[in-house]
Design a protein around this nucleic acid. Structure first.
Lengths: 227, 227
DNA sequence: GGCTATCATCTGGCATGCCAGTTGAAATGT
DNA sequence: ACATTTCAACTGGCATGCCAGATGATAGCC
């Protein structure tokens, strides 16, 4: 895989948690994880340190490592942070002199096409790419890193939500409007749009989460494998 | 100290770096740090993982752990992120129904008194507390944690800057105006104020940094102690 | 039966030993 | 004298062993 077992472990565990392979609130021991992944406790422990710093797990001394659930309040908090950061990035783009909005324009078009074809997966890819590229384009790498780290935490929820809701026609309009505001360098309009867009997105996601239980309908498969 | 050597090590190293006891760009080995702190490599290594995640150090395999310098670009990026997050918190306070602005009002008064007495240390304490409490009061713990983590990175620079510049009379006005905007629930004004305030603060800090070299005038003392 | 004390077994915390990659100065050849 | 090679002394990566605290099934008591 990569050049470091710690890195591999970190990525494997993070992805497993975000995809839902570890049921929230379950306890895991470093020995157990190490055995499953095939190497020793040390890289696993170091990876767990990082996951704990990310807020994905909680280490309980002499009890185990608990996978933290994604609660409604967490979604609310994460979305708020993401909104603040992405708005800052958008404002930066809106006031920047040299900028290339071509990729973003293409992605908006891509989303429109995906909607016409009712292709949810294609739409979600373009949507992810739009927000991703927008934040990347602002030039602040710290901001981008923090944004992606937070946003990644809700990937799982968004993925399930996509198949449970109506086609996101409203979101497509929002994106187009946001891009236009950036083009026109209209920061006041941007602030409005972002507040509307994220408030609605958050509410939609929360409604789905509450309807389907606070944890997404994914169960751990590893627990059973082990026995 | 606390209940975990890893935690102790993390806090000790983080504080040492932020206070300037480790010269930027110096390489350290985990064995060396462990010997100085008095325990073994394991807790030191786990603490270093977290410091690397914070962006304070960089681990170079088989070379050492490099203390990252605080460059002008870093200050720019950090201030931008902090501004975005604090503005979001301020807007939250401005639109919240039940809120207690008493502590913030007291801190604004405190800053005014400190200015009259030309007491820089008292002023900086009140200033820190103002921003701290403002972000805490918004109720989004994630946002608060990220804000403080980022802001902490520039503590060192701000501390030195304080004694090298004029009394921050302008900042005091800004804070008062910000609080008033929150009281009047005037979010548009808040946006303006935040952009002005942080742009000026960033520019001031950068000017001082560039005048005094990209790294603050602090040298490592530990290197010598060791010999 | 119900309650309590016990203890084998589990956990994370930490120390330590070995490995392989990197380095820079000494040893070597020209 | 200089360029090249070599190698001892580092480094972080990883595995492993021991420890003390926490747990829960069980044995013992009332």
């Amino acid at each position: 895989m990569s050049r470091s077992l710690t890195q591999d472990t970190y990525e494997a565990l993070r992805s497993a948690i975000l995809v839902g392979k570890f049921a929230p609130d379950t306890l895991w021991s470093d020995r157990e994880l190490a055995a499953q992944l095939g190497f020793s406790r040390t890289p696993v422990r170091e990876a767990i340190q990082r996951l704990a710093a990310d807020g994905l797990v909680e280490v309980i001394p002499r009890r185990g490592t608990r996978v933290l659930p994604l609660l409604a309040d967490d979604v609310r908090e994460i979305h708020q942070v993401a909104r603040a950061l992405e708005l800052e990035a958008a404002i930066m783009l809106a006031t920047s002199r040299k900028r290339d909005l071509g990729p973003l324009q293409r992605l908006v078009a891509e989303m429109a096409e995906a909607l016409e074809a009712a292709d949810r997966d294609r739409w979600v890819r373009a949507d992810e790419a739009f927000h991703h590229d927008l934040v990347e384009a602002c030039g602040n790498r710290r901001l981008a890193r923090m944004y992606h780290a937070q946003r990644g935490l809700t990937d799982r929820a968004r993925y399930f939500a996509l198949h449970l809701r109506d086609l996101p026609t409203k979101s497509a309009d929002d994106h187009r409007a946001m891009l236009e505001a950036i083009e026109r360098r209209d920061t006041a309009r941007l602030c409005e749009l972002y507040h509307e867009h994220w408030d609605r997105t958050t509410a939609e996601l929360l409604a789905l989460i509450e309807r389907h239980g606070s944890t997404m309908p994914v169960q751990s498969t590893l627990r059973e494998e082990k026995k």
